[in-house]
Design a protein around this nucleic acid. Structure first.
Lengths: 206, 206
DNA sequence: GTCTATAGAATGATAGAC
DNA sequence: GTCTATCATTCTATAGAC
């Protein structure tokens, strides 16, 4: 690992990281076709030709960035546990998803861009891993419903609602910034409280 | 209006419509930078040069498409009426927004694309018209809260939640298609019921 | 590993014939 | 109003010097 001959490997790793970081910046804002290699290279502080030494084609960069975020995408939903209390579980899920939106809004936007363009790269991921996981977690929610712990709602639409409402704070950050003067921290704290409160108890007064 | 000299005007109007329709198709999927004039022209059934006779630059086409959808964007929220029953009003708002998503998903995606790219064209719209309207409607919701008709939630975050949850069915249609085999009609019917039910009463059993 | 140079294709936009 | 031809620019990607 630390032999002199591997010194270049560490440089490569560092440069690849710089490229992936810059690529996430550009792809998340302009999508695949709206981003140029030049922009990525400039943001990563190297020449276009040098970037192409590390990734032979633009598509390879895009795939590498996508792969680096797909895992963290599945993980929070995967944690939903049928044997725990649904109120605690849903509250924790909402909080985790919101925290992800706050800490890595670019990943959320990159994902949204890819989906809105028809998911040309991750269609298999959606139809396989994601579908499998969602079906599994719909059963968890259905189990809570069958045991009288939750109202009889359509589980998949509950999941969609939580996805949409939490990712909104990352994907539409520009719009939200234009509508409020709240600090980021207050914004996310209010979002967490309001979201959990509405999902769990609704807005109506009994 | 019907004089022979205006015959060309009707042709112009028809061609402009064809261009706007094709442009909505492309811009909503690939964003501004990801769309080429060639693609729009091909989809509109004319040559690139001919398209540029009607709109001198790509940017003019984009602005025309954006303008054509901004009104329909504000209208449903503008209808929220402080003097009516909040349950009926919120239910109607959710249904209207969902119907818009179903009937014009491209408009929703175009708007989302513009926002995610930093709203370069409609920043003034967000900071002026939209902000004004949202502040007004937050007061309506706050009025309902003050009168004990709604739980004390943050009004703006309730609006964000409804926006996000309803637009999700348009913006993330590709993902949803990959996760379910429901027909479009069943999907939106379930969405409407689940969304209204959760927003109004939550998922918890009393 | 990094740079310059450049091939080759795509793109936005214009000019001018019909 | 529509088309062909064309230009300037930008972009992906490669070759080769250092």
């Amino acid at each position: 690992m630390n032999s002199p001959t591997k010194k270049t490997t560490r440089i490569q790793a560092a440069n690849q990281q710089k490229i992936l970081e810059a690529a996430l910046d550009m792809f998340s804002q302009f999508g695949y076709r709206g981003t140029t290699i030049d922009q990525i290279a400039a943001k990563a502080g190297m020449s276009k030709a040098n970037l192409l030494y590390y990734f032979r084609r633009k598509n390879d960069v895009y795939l590498a960035v996508l792969e680096s975020i797909l895992d963290q995408w599945l993980e929070p939903l995967a944690r939903l546990d049928q044997d725990k209390d649904p109120e605690q579980e849903l509250r924790a899920y909402i909080e985790t998803k919101l925290r992800l939106s706050q800490q890595n809004p670019r990943a959320s936007r990159l994902f949204a861009n890819e989906i809105m363009q028809g998911a040309p790269m991750i269609q298999p991921f959606l139809s396989n891993q994601l579908k499998e996981l969602v079906e599994l977690k719909c059963e968890v929610i259905q189990h809570w419903i069958d045991n009288g712990k939750l109202q009889p709602v359509k589980p998949m639409h509950l999941i969609f609602m939580i996805w949409a409402s939490t990712q909104h704070y990352a994907d539409f950050a520009t719009q939200i910034q234009a509508l409020t003067t709240d600090t980021d921290d207050k914004l996310y704290k209010d979002a967490s409280q309001t979201l959990s409160s509405i999902v769990l108890r609704g807005v109506l007064v009994d």
